[in-house]
Amino acid sequence: MSQANPMLVDLDRVTLTYGEGRNQTPALAETSLRIAEGEFIAVVGPSGCGKSSLLKLVSGLMPATTGNVIVAQQEVTAPIKIVGMAFQNPNLLPWRNTLRNVMLPVEIVQPHRSRWRQERGAYTERARSLLKTVGLDEFENRLPWQLSGGMQQRTSLCRALMHEPSLLLLDEPFGALDAFTREELWAVLQTLWMEKRFTVILVTHDLREALYLADTIYVMSARPGRILVRHEVDMPRPRTLANTYEPAFIEALSVLRGHISEARTNGLAA
């Protein structure tokens, strides 16, 4: 399916090394990865394998040591505006209520930056409708500390989508939540994605999460990370929690788990 679509993200033999001189730590070994527009990919791997580094490269928060990072036919050298990002911590501004937290990106990212003051009504409506899709429409005036962890993370998701990015980067966004809330938010994210069809890179260490959400799963090796396996998930959408208990899902899960434990033992041996 990906052949017909243009590639939105193209990592070509990218490496990343932290530090200088003798303190060098390689985080990513030569990694090549192509993501089609509208594709939902998940990156899984043992902890410390450079998954988050991969996101920092794609978002332009950090430059690659060698190799090219191309997003939307442009070489990435600095943070790019077509990206929305959500992190493991919700990272909401504690002095802003839910609505104003969601509005933050349009105050910064062009072309909204020069428009939002004039078209405040329209932008507020957009923020409200995003909050409604994640079930927070009655909480727009609450401050972050008045929200539960799950609600904060939903707000963070809305904020990442507020400037209508074509590429959504998620760095273990549900990692700090309890299992029930996490599964609830999988469905929320899937709904949002099916509605707007942005491209997603989800970094996670939860294999069920990856299988539930992604079209394609990449398994990375232990540090320095490199892509070991590409696994395509062909389950119809919308997927439900019931799907995750079907034999096909469980089988895929155990295959993935096998890859991961292989990656870990190889990493320990090296």
């Binding site: 978002s59 943070p79 990002m85 990272n91 002095w95 933050l104 105050e107 910064i108 990212v109 400037h163």
Partner: peptide
């Protein structure tokens, strides 16, 4: 650093970080 990352990932300028994060946080 975490709030700064949020702003930086949006391509915020230094003045944005000052106005939207540093000053309100210092209140």
């Amino acid at each position: 650093p975490e709030l700064d990352d949020v702003l930086r990932s949006l391509g915020a300028r230094k003045i944005d970080v000052l106005l939207k994060v540093s000053i309100p946080r210092a209140m």
